[in-house]
Structures are given as C-alpha cells and as structure tokens.
Design a protein around this nucleic acid. Structure first.
Lengths: 230, 230
DNA sequence: AAAAGAAATTGATACAGATCAATACCTTGA
DNA sequence: TCAAGGTATTGATCTGTATCAATTTCTTTT
C-alpha cells in the first residue's frame, strides 16, 4: 500500500482526522503497515498490549471467548478505526481478542513510541480520549441492553443504529453474517432467526438473504424502546 | 472541606496520583468543591456533559434506567474516583445517570477549563487515558459475563474481585445493599437471595446480614470460571 | 453441473431466571 | 415498647431463550 493512500485513510479517521498534514506524516513514521489474511489473529486476550492497529481496509472482530467455546463479539471494526488501542494506556493486557474477518491492510503503532509522541501532540491525546469516550458509551448501552432488554429490543436497536449510519436509508445490507450478528447481540443464531421471522410477519421488516428492508421504522423504534413486539 | 484535605485525596487518586504538588495546586484552582446530600442526582442521562466530578468522600452509583422503572447499576464509585469524566471528551451527552448513595463531598471540574489545561499537561492526559482504559476493561468483562455466564458465575466473580480488593481477606462486608448488588450483577434481588442461599448450602459461603465469609475460595473461583455450582 | 460444505431455518424440549405475592426480618423513631 | 417502613427471604408460576437435532437453502469447489 502506498504512503499517500495510507495518509488519506488516516486523515479520514476519527483518531487522526483533526491533524495537519505535517503531523500525519510524523505519525506515519512511528509505525509500519502490513497485510493480514482472513482469519488472522491480531492479538489474544491476556497478551501484553505492545501497541495497537489502525485498520486501513477490511474488517476485524473484537471478541471474548470462554473455554467452553462460546464467544461474544464486542465490536466489528472497519477502515479507519483503531483496534486494541485502549489497554495500552492502562498498562494492562488485552482484555479481549481480535481477528480479521477478511483480508485486511493494517497500520501498527508500537506502544512506547506512540505514548511518547502523545506528550508532544496534545490534540492527538484529546482525539484519543474522544475515541475511548465513544467506546465507553457504546459499551454502556450494550450493558444496559443485555441486562434490561430482551432480544427483540436489542435487535431493533441495532437495526436503528444501522439505519442511522446509512443516512436513514430503509434498505440495508447486513455488514455481517447472521451468526455474527447473533453473537454481537448476545444471543444464538436460532433465536435471531426466529425473531427476524416474527418481525417480518408483524410487518416491521422484509428479509431477503442479508438484505433487509425496514417497512415500519416507527414501530421498530418502539420495539427498541419498550421491548415488546406487536 | 479544607484545601489540604482535598489535595491529599486528589494526590491519592488514580487520576491525579502521578502529579507533582505544583500541578495539583493548579488543578485545584480549576474547579470547586461542594457537598451533596444522600440521594442527590449529579447528572442525568442525556444531559450535556459540562464537566465531571471527583468524589472526595462518600459513594456514588452510576446507572442506566429504562422508562419501565428498571435500572442497571454500571459502577459504584468511592473516594478519589472520577464521575462522569468520559463523555466530556467525545462531546457527547452523559450516557448514564449518577446519584449519591450517601452524603458526599465532591470536586467539580468544568469541561472547557479542564480540557484546555490538558493541553499543557501531557502527564494528566495520559493519566486520564489510563482511567478510561481501565473502565473499558471492566465493561468488557461485564459484557462477557452478561452475555455468556449465568448469575452464579457473575456473583462468584464479583466476590472474588471484592476479596482481591480487601487484600485476600476471606471475611467481607458488602459495600452495598443486596438489592444494589443484584442490579450490579444484572439480576433481581430474589434471584440473588436464592443463589446466595445455594452457595451457603453448597459450603462456599457463610452469610450473616451483609457480612459474608468465604469458606471455599478455590471452589468459588471455579464457579466464576465454569459457571456451574456443586 | 454435481458434490460437498457452510449458513440459516424450523421444530421440540428443558431450564434459568423474572415476576408476583406473601411473609419474615431488621431498623429507626415516637 | 410498639409501630412503621424499608430490606430481605421464600414460595409458586410463567416465559424467554438456550440447546439439540433435523432439514433446507445457499455457496463454493472441482
């Protein structure tokens, strides 16, 4: 991947978006880019956090796994997003694992170098704080949903945010497999399938493969809020 | 509350612990301290984050509430800990509400002033990053537990961390009511009560009011890991 | 195009935990 | 000392969802 391309992606990211060209070039010298195959483990829970990645292209899942083989997806990350940045600052091991879902282009920044640079670049530190802040907010609502809401509400909420991200478009393409979505929502593929079915018969949605059309956005929003269907 | 006392508490906190005396005094000039009664709301979900508190004394709960009246406690915070610091940086509203559980002494830092100062104090920015990083880790395991583990495992894990915090002491005083603990674990008081009962008959614990004695730490650790009791 | 494999659906069953209601227990104040 | 209000326990019931198993549908490979 060419330098210019990398810079372009970094410039468009939340983390480095506010930086001037000169600063961006500096950042570029701090790390190195590399390619990763589909299914590659970027890091595993418990390992020391020696640095973090910025995802230049492709998709990565961050997940927790139990030794009985169950797993919970915490995030699905796309281009421009940092991966594994949080644990660095606490001097703690990675609290979860990360794996590529497709071939990816990655930019790796080593811990020491980056933290050192942070001291000279207050705007970068603030950007980093903003990123962690947003992560915390996402987790906050995830916890609320898992503890207090049932699967239909969680699904409805997810579909709502997906619709937001697509600029209000009512016809959506799921950016992940249904099994992965189930894991993200903290349920099983079977249950997800059934509830999608119920939402279709109740007239909220139309589903065709991994394309789905939202017929009743208000109704869906209500399910997300109140939890109950029909 | 006297300045000296405040400084002492700030100096002992995670956030300001690394700062020199001069820097601490600067921090002190940025905000102001005040007292709060038991049950006072510090902020509510959805409000703009105009700053954050450092808890000087007392206890605060941070929670999410649904409009059906259910609530999930996210954190219980004690002296030295910051409250509501995260949303400031993202420029996002408070994602949860905070309420005092007892009379508290608070130190309030307004957003603008603090963020401005952060630019001159890289070590403070790093400390802030470390704090958010730890919060994220705690949330990460909370999500894992809610999605993949059942109540006995969550309770066992909580008791373990409580024991750690008390330096391995096997005789513990619950720092919160059982109803609050239930909310923190994402369950109902009834269920918590039953499971505590089962743990007693299984020989893991002895419970007397809100004092409990851990009889079988290894067994408890196993329940936390594997989920199943007896 | 056929075969093999993965992903998704559907059905039947079991169980953890929520909920509702009633009772017991402990404070705290009058 | 008794009342009163909160906090905790216990019992009975109901429901959402996990789980196991069996197909069905789609995707990929050869």
């Amino acid at each position: 991947m060419k330098e210019a391309e990398i810079i372009e992606i970094l410039a468009g990211s939340l983390l480095f978006g506010g930086l001037e060209d000169r600063a961006l070039k500096t950042v570029l010298t701090l790390g190195r880019s590399r390619a990763a195959l589909r299914g590659e483990l970027l890091f595993q829970e418990g390992e020391a956090a020696t640095g973090f990645f910025v995802l230049l292209s492709g998709k990565v899942k961050v997940f927790k796994a139990t030794f009985e083989g169950k797993e919970k997806i915490l995030h699905i990350l796309g281009p421009g997003e940092p991966v594994g940045e949080a644990p660095m600052f606490g001097g703690i091991p990675y609290p979860a694992s990360a794996q590529t879902l497709e071939p990816c282009q990655l930019f790796f920044l080593p811990r020491e170098v980056f933290i050192d640079k942070l001291k000279d670049m207050p705007e970068l530190a603030l950007a980093m704080l903003a990123v962690l802040s947003r992560r915390l907010r996402v987790f906050t609502t995830q916890i609320e949903h898992l503890a207090l809401k049932e699967v239909p509400a969680r699904l409805a909420a997810y579909l709502n945010t997906l619709k937001e991200e697509c600029g209000g478009e009512t016809s959506l393409v799921l950016p992940l497999s249904k099994a992965q979505l189930a894991s993200l929502l903290g349920t099983s593929p079977e249950t997800l399938s059934r509830i999608l079915g119920r939402m279709v018969t109740a007239g909220y949605l139309n589903v065709t493969g991994n394309i789905l059309e939202i017929c009743d956005p208000e109704g869906l929003a209500q399910v997300a809020e109140e939890g109950r269907m029909e």
